[in-house]
């Protein structure tokens, strides 16, 4: 398994990607929001699940910035704040240096209380969040001055690795108050979230496959996501180099493909061995 995973890391490969309806809907939800919409990005994960979730977080932040949405970052996990900061550094500071903190995006940081936090801020945001991550009062920050509660958000994007996460955002904000929710989750969580789509959740990215599909959709519509802000349609194809930090989902599908093929082969071999063992036993 180690060899099956390491080889495609050293010699990268990008399998052909066909986006699912869930990923397409998640993409269309962000894409079809009017420019300048309020989007809450909840980063409820930590470095332990970053290999699965960071690619989709990167893609979503880039997409929101591209569509000039106002981004409100927050976390229900303590280490989520660091993930927000990493993503802001990697995406906004790099590709959108013109965006200003407090005007175009704000980091509301972490609050403990799990679903209790959602339950409070869905009626009064400033009851729990009175300052942002820099310690500046929300009443003084231009983009939070007029925000009363979660109901002022046009969309909630939840990237989550467990509890509290997407399920809680759907239960306490999306379903009771009719706020649109799209979620990105780990592979373990994905089957538990499927029942919420499409009634209570507008789109979903399940694990690294979902992230890869979203990256594919984003790169197809906006090639500058994949090739950088200097991309031009006139550039010869052989000179176009995908940016590694922005295509982690696509590149990680290479090792996934090889590893899954290996598992399939091992299952088949195991069954053949069992069958032969049984036959040998019957012959005796």
């Amino acid at each position: 398994m180690a060899v099956a995973v390491i080889v495609p890391i050293i010699w990268p490969m990008e399998p052909f990607e066909i986006p699912s309806t869930l990923a397409k809907d998640a993409f269309e939800t962000v894409e079809n929001l009017p420019e300048g919409s309020n989007v809450l990005l909840a980063f409820d994960y930590d470095p332990g699940s970053a290999p699965e979730l960071q690619p989709m977080a990167t893609a979503w932040v880039w997409h929101c910035a591209k569509k000039h949405h106002r981004m409100y970052f927050m976390a229900l996990w303590p280490l989520g704040v660091n993930m927000v900061q990493d993503t802001v550094d990697q995406v906004i500071h790099k590709d959108y240096p013109e965006l200003e903190e407090g005007v175009d995006y704000v980091n509301l940081a972490f609050r403990t209380g799990n679903e209790g936090v959602i339950k409070v801020i869905v009626t009064n945001l400033k009851a729990l969040f009175n300052v942002d991550s820099r310690g500046e009062a929300l009443t003084q920050i231009p983009m939070t001055k007029k925000i009363v509660s979660l109901r002022d958000m046009n969309l909630i994007i939840s990237v989550s690795a467990g509890y509290p996460g997407t399920k809680e955002w759907i239960q306490y904000a999306g379903t009771p108050y009719g706020i649109k929710v799209v979620g990105g989750c780990t592979g373990v969580q994905a089957p538990l979230l499927y029942p919420y789509y499409p009634g209570q959740m507008q789109g979903m990215l399940g694990a690294i496959k979902g992230a890869s599909e979203y990256e594919h959709l984003l790169s197809t519509k906006y090639p500058e996501y994949k090739y950088g802000p200097s991309y031009s349609p006139d550039t010869p194809k052989d000179k176009l180099k995908p940016r590694k930090n922005f295509t982690q989902g696509l590149t990680r599908m290479g090792p996934q493909l090889i590893a899954h093929c290996l598992i399939l082969v091992l299952i088949v071999l195991g069954n053949i061995a069992l069958y032969m063992q049984r036959r040998a036993r019957e012959a005796v």
């Binding site: 995973v5 699965e52 690294i208 090792p255 996934q256 590893a259 899954h260």
Partner: peptide, 20 residues
Amino acid sequence: GFTVMGRIALLVGRFQFLVQ
């Protein structure tokens, strides 16, 4: 199947860290 995919993604992440 999803769980296996998730675990492999974590393994890929660690190996990418070690290699890259």
